[in-house]
Amino acid sequence: MDLKTFLTENRKAILDRWLSQIVKTYPADSSNFLLNNTNRFSNPVGQTFLREIETLFNGLIDEADSEAIVNSLEQIDKIRAVQNFTASQAVAYVFFLKTAIREELDRSPDDENLTRDILSLESKIDGMALMAFDSYMHCREKLFEVRCNDIKRQASLFGGPNIEKRKHRS
C-alpha cells in the first residue's frame, strides 16, 4: 500500500486525531464545547478548525491547490493570532498532523513502502508549517495595523472626520 492510499483510507481517523490535538491546546474545561458544538455560528472557532484542517489534509494528498492551503492556514492562524498563544504555540498545530499520522500508522501493520514515503510526507508538513509561520506573522501584522488604524481613528476624533477638507475650507 502506498502512503496516499493509506491517508485516503484513514482520512477520518487522522483528521479526528488532529482536531482533538488542536483542541487540547485550549483549557480542558472548554475543549468539549469546541469539539461537540457543530453549529458554525455558535462555535465558530471549533468549526473553522474542523473545516480548514480538512482542506490542509487534502493539500497533502494533492486534492487541494496551494492557494486553498494558504487560505486555510490563514483562517486558522487568524484565530490563534488573537488568542493567548505564543508564536510557537500558535502554529504548532501543523506539526500535530505528524503525530496524528504516526499514531494512525502505529495501528496498521508494518509496511516498507509506508515508512519510506513518510519521510517525504513529513517534509511536506514542515513546508506547510513554514507557510503557517508566514501566515501567522501576516495576521499579527494585520492586528497591529488594525490597532494603528484604530489609534488614528481615535486621534481623528479630536480633529473630526474629513479633517483635510476642513483644514482646506477654514
Binding site: T38, R40, S42
Partner: peptide
Amino acid sequence: KTELKNGPRLAYGS
C-alpha cells in the same frame, strides 16, 4: 434551535 449543521459530528443538541 439548530441549523446549518456541518461535519460528521453529533448534532448540537445538548
